[in-house]
């Protein structure tokens, strides 16, 4: 059916038009305050602060990129772990010398011990002489112990500008490389001794075997 035919029918269908018209007339009218309520709702929706999320997302992305950028690589972590090992002898040097400091009082105490020993009448003169001989031996290291105090300062002065940390390589680890395997002189001597013993045992066995063969041939 074309539009023209339908338009003609629209004019003809009076009953249908009247029915729809009556229906529309009886339909409840729009409330007068509906538009006001609508405008209030629109105003409320405009007032609602819109949460803008995209700057937060962008900030989070930037923070993530910075975190990745600033975190050191794994190799650097290994070096950082090794750093204390490198610094240990430098730092440890001073404590070792400093630890010797208490030895100084020991040196000071030794004369007291001598005095006690001298006071003891029961101690033989030979022992006293021996003790007297020992004390210089004890005292002799006392002179170097006094030096470490100066050395401490010297080391401390030199240690103030901390040297740059030396990076450890795989070569520095002692056991992993075959070239690091070296026998000590004691080990070498023991090995020579064992070789000689083994050679002598072998000669003895050869002699026994030859003896037995001689006997067997004689019996035959």
């Amino acid at each position: 059916m074309t539009e023209e035919q339908l338009n003609a029918l629209r004019q003809q269908d009076t009953n249908l038009r009247d029915a729809i018209w009556q229906d529309e007339m009886e339909r409840p009218q729009m409330p007068a305050d509906l538009n006001e309520r609508l405008m209030q709702r629109v105003a409320k929706e405009e007032k609602k602060p819109r949460r803008i999320i995209w700057p937060w997302i962008a900030a989070a992305c930037v923070a993530g990129v910075l975190m990745i950028w600033l975190t050191p690589p794994k190799e650097a972590d290994v070096v950082a772990e090794k750093k204390p090992k490198v610094e240990h002898p430098v730092k440890g040097g001073t404590p070792q010398i400093a630890e010797k400091k208490p030895t100084a009082p020991q040196v000071v105490e030794t004369p007291q011990k001598e005095e006690v020993a001298k006071q003891k009448t029961t101690v033989a003169k030979r022992d006293a002489a021996l003790l007297a001989q020992e004390t210089p031996q004890v005292e002799s290291p006392a002179t170097p112990t006094a030096e470490p105090a100066h050395m401490d300062l010297a080391v401390a002065e030199t240690a103030k500008p901390e040297p740059e940390p030396v990076l450890l390589t795989e070569r520095d680890i002692p056991v992993t490389r075959p070239e690091n395997y070296r026998y000590t002189p004691e080990e070498l001597a023991l090995m020579k001794k064992q070789a000689n013993e083994a050679y002598l045992k072998w000669v003895e066995l050869e002699l026994e075997i030859s003896k037995q063969t001689m006997e067997q041939t004689a019996l035959k």
Binding site: Q12, N15, A19
Partner: peptide, 17 residues
Amino acid sequence: VEATFGHPNPETVQLIR
């Protein structure tokens, strides 16, 4: 169909409604 809708009749209007 034309007879139902075309001829003005108040009863038919109510039926159509």
